[in-house]
């Protein structure tokens, strides 16, 4: 598609950085040690730009842009931390906490959860919005893993890893809006899925306590999605 990528120079939070034209603002920031919060992004998976945590301000535009999908451009001036952005990010987190049932104290991901971490780093000490408290099931039908919809933030990392990396396409979404639900195959119990290879990738990439390894309940073992970059490097090497 694109010809040879060109080198672009831009400014992120006052720092001059250079990046290749096929890189996103997020790539460029990370390479230069500038951290931008993310939830739906994961190195090695396609981007969906869905969580809006990574929104940044671009000089000359009132429209906020998601850093994970916006390609760098020559002369771009990016600001990643402004009171406005921080306010919006806090609200995204609050909305997530109020959307489903996050009871951290009894959650398998307690103290090693992407959402909980972000709440702490963004200073979310309470949620101003009414808790919706939906009634949601927990699917424990799989021999080794479980899915607790109460903790799912619908980031679709599991959907993407299963589809793009494992090639099983077990996960998908059903319904829309706040009623969206992660389903396996044609809305069957996970344990009865014909496609799941029990590889466990979805469990490792899930940022929250929604997908977990039954043997690790309370085992206080952090998830490890690092295998993704390894797999991708392998692929690149093979090409």
């Amino acid at each position: 598609m694109n010809p040879v990528p060109a080198v672009k120079t831009l400014v992120i939070d006052g720092t001059d950085v250079s990046a290749s034209s096929d890189q996103t603002i997020l790539d460029a920031a990370q390479e230069n040690g500038i951290s931008i919060p993310t939830l739906c992004h994961l190195d090695g998976l396609t981007e969906v730009g869905a969580c809006r945590m990574c929104l940044v301000e671009l000089k000359g535009s009132t429209k906020l842009q998601p850093a994970c999908v916006t390609l760098v451009e020559e002369g771009m001036e990016v600001t990643t931390q402004t009171p406005r952005l921080q306010k919006y990010r806090r609200m995204v987190l609050e909305l997530l906490f109020a959307e489903r049932n996050h009871v951290c104290s009894v959650c398998v991901a307690n103290n090693m959860c992407g959402l909980q971490d972000q709440a702490k780093s963004h200073g979310v000490t309470h949620v101003r919005f009414p808790y919706r408290s939906p009634a949601l099931p927990v699917d424990v039908s799989h021999e080794r893993f479980a899915l607790d919809h109460n903790r799912c933030i619908l980031c679709t990392r599991c959907v993407r890893v299963c589809n793009e990396i494992e090639g099983a396409h077990t996960w998908d979404l059903l319904g829309r809006g706040v009623n969206s639900l992660l389903i396996s195959d044609l809305h069957e119990p996970w344990g009865e899925s014909d496609t799941c290879t029990s590889c466990g990738k979805c469990v490792q990439v899930c940022p929250t306590g929604a997908l977990f390894d039954k043997s690790k309940v309370g085992g206080k073992e952090r998830k490890n999605p690092d295998f993704l970059s390894y797999l991708n490097d392998m692929r690149e090497g093979l090409r």
């Binding site: 049932n101 309470h126 949620v127 009634a135």
Partner: peptide
């Protein structure tokens, strides 16, 4: 958390 979020007591809220 009970005071701040409802926490464990609030787990009954969908019933």
């Amino acid at each position: 958390d009970c005071a701040v979020t409802g926490n464990v007591p609030a787990m009954r809220n969908s019933i």
